[in-house]
Amino acid sequence: MMGPAIDLQQVALTLGQTRILYDIDLHVPAGSIHALIGPNGAGKSSLIKTLMGQMPHRGSLTLTWPDKPGVIGYVPQALEFDRTLPMTVDDFMGVMTQRRPAFFGLSSRNTGAIDDALTRVGMQHKRKRRMGALSGGERQRIMLAQALIPAPALLVLDEPMAALDEAGVAVFEDLLGYWRKQEATVLWVEHDLDAVRRLADRVTGLNHQVIFDGPPAEMLSAGQLLTLFSAHPRRREASGETGGAATLSRAAA
């Protein structure tokens, strides 16, 4: 099933006294791979969390599904957990993909899907290893594997390549190709500009506000990147602007 189009209109986010996002207008076409880039602290992860319903915000956020609403997959920037826990890769995949308690083992209904997902990310041979014993790149591959179950129509990826080695990067690029063929919508936060040039359909430069938005070949020029990484957010708190209540709607729901 094709993924949804994403539309943000005048989305603003303030945490305490700090304005994080300024009036974000953004359109992500259905079935596209859309990259989000910008300097550290620019609000990229905050925008992702806003989309996932984890941040209070002003403005409108709409998912328009071509048919009925589908599955949303999410890969966070890092997996935080107690590394001394005796939790294997199989245990983790069970926790993330089934309702049955992990200490009862993997559900037979999910075993095939978990086998396929771990094989796709090259981690089938590590399934009995403790999660705490894996490298950062291996844990990131496991996070990518869990996002495959059930098959997602919308992928939200927060710097998925950050801890990956060369082999892991190849796995991730293969997954992007797979999701493209499935016509999933992918919103992807990334720092690797070469990867964005090669793999994204469209790129948005964010530094608390949208600096540019368009095809990577046109947007990732030296001049545009200089503007992005040196931009300062508009200071509009003093203007007394207000916004209406935030809304989240799924047009086909």
Rank of each mutant, 00 (worst) to 15 (best):
H125L: 09
T18H: 06
Q54N: 11
S32C: 14
E173R: 13
N110A: 13
A35E: 03
V189Y: 01
V28L: 07
A42P: 08
T62N: 11
V169T: 14
G168A: 07
F172R: 00
G243P: 01
R202M: 13
M2Y: 03
S32V: 12
I114N: 04
I149K: 01
R109Y: 13
R236I: 13
E138K: 00
G31M: 07
E80Q: 14
I48Q: 07
G168V: 00
D165I: 05
T64K: 14
S60F: 11
P160G: 03
L21A: 10
I72L: 05
M87D: 05
L144P: 06
N40D: 10
G38S: 00
A117H: 06
V189E: 02
L26D: 03
L206D: 02
R100T: 14
G240I: 07
R202I: 09
E166F: 05
W179K: 09
L118N: 00
P215K: 04
M131V: 06
D201A: 09
G73W: 03
L248F: 11
V171Y: 05
Q10D: 15
W65D: 06
S32M: 08
M52H: 05
L248Y: 13
T18V: 01
L15P: 06
A133P: 03
G122T: 04
K128E: 15
I149S: 05
N40L: 01
A170G: 08
L13R: 00
L157W: 04
